[in-house]
Each structure stands twice: as structure tokens, then as C-alpha cells.
Amino acid sequence: MKLFSFKKGVSVPSCAVMTGGTGGIGCEIAGLLLEKGWDVLLLTRQPRKAEEQISSRNGRFEAVYCDLTKPEDLEAISAAILERKKSIGLLIHCAGKIQPELTKDLTRHSLEEQMAINLTSPILMTSQLLPNLSPASHIVFVNSIAGVMPLQGSAVYSATKFGLRGFARSLALEFKAGTIRVSSIFLGAVDTPMLEQETRDGGSVLNFVNKPLPARHVASLIIRTSEGRGREIFLPALDGIFAHACLIMPWLLRMTTPILEKIGHIGLRRFQKNKQHFHKI
């Protein structure tokens, strides 16, 4: 498997490796990194789509086919990256999969796919690429508020995101201060195709208690985070405070859910109305 190469004698910055670049957030992240002169290697099941969406601008960009549900794909890609002996300055795990369904309706396929994309692949990829991470590199996990607050009707998704938070926190303890940094971004609803699909599949109306965030705004925050020290960020911040309160007081979520659902239904109707208006323009 051949990845992009560099001319001898040409000084280039360490590269960024990321997943999930054909989604709303990932596409914006890749574009912003390229504007900053990064060389970006995107792992995706839709490389052609990624190349159509993302302009190379200042940096060098390549989309490589990789099915995150297949460990053998991850191993092959990781081996190819290691062979390049190119330092990785930024590793962003942005791919995500949610399949809203009650536990009684759970299928083996949806369980395995969500587990693989949301939890197993970030763990395996991080482990396999660690030898190529520069001493000052940053690993960023794009997580969800569902990784802090239980999400009714999407128990598997929430479980994978809780697990990802645990992995990220434990991973950070393996590095000395001033070396590799680890950050997790816990997002509420973001205006992306993934949110629209989740809504069509019967996702939680709690996504619309607040207005979904613009993907570009979220991507900018992720880039800024990658340039600083490792930390956890909750967006919106109030969602993070409420989620932690619910962890301490489990009864709080059950008590407030009926009110939040009413607010969410209003927000959902507004969101759908805006989308219909946008498509008519």
C-alpha cells in the first residue's frame, strides 16, 4: 500500500492522520489543517468522496481506503504509515457511528459496527501508530456528550463513548508531562449529515434541546485544542456540567427528561423547518 511521499531535501511539517473525513466535522477539520500547511492522511471507506470534498490548498492531502470495522485493514494501513518513517504530529479520531434502537431490538450487526468504529478502531490505531508519533504530538478523540450522560434509545452508542473516554484518560497517564498530549472533545448535537440520519432513524429529541452547532465552529475548536495542552472539552459547556451532575445524581436525568423532551420537540421542528427552507433555496 503506497501512501504519499515527499521529495528528498524538502522540509515538511509532521503529518496529521485522521479518520472520519467525509462527515461534516471531519471534512472541515481536514480543510482547516490543510490551510495551516499540514500534510493530511485521511483513512476512509470513501476516498473518492473525500478527495471531491476536500481541497489540498497549502498542504498535501491523500485519502486512503480503510474499513475501520476490519482490524486487518487497520494493521495494513498502520504498517504502511510506519514504513514511511514520517513523524505523526497529530492523530485525530473523528469517525463515529450511531444506530438508535432499544436494547430489545438490538442486532449483532449494529452492535459490532458501533463497537468497532467508535471504540475498537481508535484503540487499535493509536496503539499501532504510537511508534511514529513525535514526542510533542497530540492525540484527539472526538467524543460525544453521550460518553458522559446515558442516552436513552442508543445504549450501545453511549457505552462505546463511555469506553472511549476511559481509554483516553488512561492513555494520557502513560505519557510524561511535556510529551504526547491527549484530548477528548465531548460534543452535543452538531449540524451534520450524521445528525440528520440519526433523526430519521428515530434518534433522541434531546439532540435539539439546544440548537445544533455548526460543523465549522466545532472543527475550529478541535484545531485550537490540538495546538494546546491535553484536556477534556465539553461543547456546549453547560451540557457537560449537566451531564456530570446526572452522573452524581442519576435521578436528576429521569426527573428532567419529560421537560427536556418537550423542549427538544420544539427544537426539532425548528431544525426541520430550517432544513426544508434551505433545500428550497
Rank of each mutant, 00 (worst) to 15 (best):
S144L: 11
S144T: 10
S144K: 12
S144A: 14
I145C: 02
I145V: 15
A146V: 12
A146P: 01
A146C: 14
A146Q: 05
G147I: 03
G147T: 10
G147V: 14
G147N: 13
V148W: 03
V148T: 14
V148Y: 04
V148K: 15
V148S: 04
V148C: 09
M149P: 03
M149G: 04
M149N: 11
P150L: 11
P150D: 06
L151F: 14
L151K: 05
L151T: 10
L151C: 15
Q152S: 14
Q152E: 13
G153T: 02
G153P: 05
G153I: 08
S154A: 15
S154L: 05
A155W: 02
A155S: 15
A155G: 13
V156M: 13
V156L: 12
V156E: 07
V156A: 06
V156C: 10
V156N: 09
Y157G: 08
Y157W: 10
S158Y: 02
S158R: 09
S158I: 00
S158K: 08
T160F: 09
T160A: 09
T160Y: 07
T160D: 06
K161D: 07
K161T: 08
K161N: 01
K161V: 03
K161W: 04
F162W: 15
F162L: 09
F162K: 08
G163M: 10
G163D: 05
G163L: 03
L164N: 02
L164S: 06
L164E: 01
L164R: 01
L164T: 07
L164A: 02
R165C: 07
R165S: 14
R165L: 15
G166L: 02
G166A: 11
G166C: 05
F167S: 04
F167L: 04
F167T: 02
A168C: 08
A168Q: 01
A168L: 03
A168F: 09
A168G: 13
A168P: 05
A168V: 00
A168I: 03
R169H: 05
R169F: 05
R169I: 03
S170A: 13
S170Q: 04
S170W: 01
S170E: 00
S170K: 06
S170T: 07
L171R: 09
L171C: 05
L171S: 12
L171K: 12
L171I: 09
A172P: 02
A172Q: 14
A172D: 01
L173N: 11
L173K: 11
L173S: 02
L173H: 01
E174W: 03
E174S: 11
E174N: 04
E174Q: 11
E174P: 05
E174D: 14
E174T: 01
F175Q: 02
F175T: 00
F175K: 00
F175Y: 11
K176G: 08
K176I: 08
K176R: 15
K176H: 06
A177W: 01
A177P: 08
A177N: 13
A177V: 08
G178Y: 10
G178T: 12
T179F: 13
T179G: 00
T179Y: 11
I180D: 00
I180K: 04
I180C: 04
I180Q: 01
I180M: 00
